[in-house]
């Protein structure tokens, strides 16, 4: 009982401390297609990441803010509308009440939200050792690690904003044997990057677990490894967290270009006007 309380405390602490990674070990910085001023999502990666979410994460984690229809919107995984309709229809969605006042189940439609694995948070907590697995819709924006001085200043100039994504991959791939002398409470799991190093979630991914689409040569173009799964599902979650990222960066470039030209013109106008007087 004591151990269980400790575990819950650790899990609660885990949620409460998303902003701080374990001391000393910062997540490695990875290359992301959506980083930088011209960054955009890689459709194939989002599709693979969605497959990982669907086959692995979705058994415990909800994706409450995402609708099926989002999967076919521009700047996303690039599924066709027909694919999305077929995909939604595979899910059962509760609807109602109907004219008789009863709730009923029907096949999902593109306008529906992704159904959550548990009917409510208490059920989710009860089935997972007392702590509900968090919703994943916003994960890469809801987690980070402290960059510290002076890095946080450089980040504003280099546009480094992928700290949440780096952290998620680090946690997903950070399951190791606990070092000697470190006692992991029962039901907890050692993780090099999770704050406090004890995470309630068991190691979710293993090599070869999810089958990726095959290329022309009959082999998957990317390795079916934990590392690749972690990157793909994180990229997918970055898209669910920021579905308009592509448009944001594209429009941003146009806006800044426009403002630079405008500022230039205004500068020379200003110079001309002020040349009338000594100042």
């Amino acid at each position: 009982m004591m151990k269980r309380t400790l575990l819950i405390a650790a899990a609660v602490l885990g949620l409460s401390a998303p902003a701080i990674a374990s001391e000393g070990a910062n997540p490695p910085q990875l290359k992301w297609s959506f980083a930088g001023p011209f960054g955009k999502f890689d459709e194939a990666q989002l599709q693979r990441g969605f497959k990982v979410y669907r086959e692995v994460c979705s058994s415990c984690h909800s994706l409450n803010y995402v609708n099926f229809r989002n999967l076919s919107q521009p700047g996303g995984p690039g599924f066709s509308e027909a694919q999305v309709r077929a995909l939604a229809a595979e899910y059962k969605v509760q609807d109602g009440p109907n004219d008789a006042g009863d709730m009923f189940e029907r096949a999902g439609r593109p306008a529906d939200h992704f159904p959550a694995p548990f009917p409510n948070e208490n059920a989710a907590a009860a089935a997972n050792g007392g702590k509900a697995p968090p919703d994943l819709s916003l994960m890469p924006k809801a987690r980070t690690y402290e960059r510290g001085f002076p890095w946080f200043i450089f980040d504003a100039f280099t546009q480094f904003a992928e700290n949440g994504s780096d952290y998620l991959v680090a946690v997903l791939t950070g399951y190791h044997e606990a070092p000697k002398g470190f006692s992991v409470p029962e039901g907890g799991h050692y993780n090099s990057y999770f704050p406090g190093n004890v995470i309630a979630m068991p190691k979710p991914l293993s090599d070869g677990q999810v089958e990726y689409p095959k290329g022309a040569d009959g082999k998957s173009p990317v390795p079916e490894t934990v590392d690749q799964y972690a990157r793909d599902v994180t990229a997918f979650l970055m898209w669910t967290a920021e579905p308009h990222l592509d448009a944001r960066k594209r429009i941003g470039f146009q806006v800044i270009l426009f403002l630079l030209v405008l500022s230039g013109l205004l500068y020379f106008t200003k110079k001309k006007i002020w040349s009338r007087i000594e100042h």
Binding site: A161, I251, G252, V255, T269
Partner: peptide, 30 residues
Amino acid sequence: DLFATAVFMILFAWFVFYIPNYLGHADNYV
């Protein structure tokens, strides 16, 4: 003033379009 405001808008746009969550807290997406 117009010139200075246009230059300031470049700084504003940099944050809005490229690092919109830089000045916020990750916790506020929970």
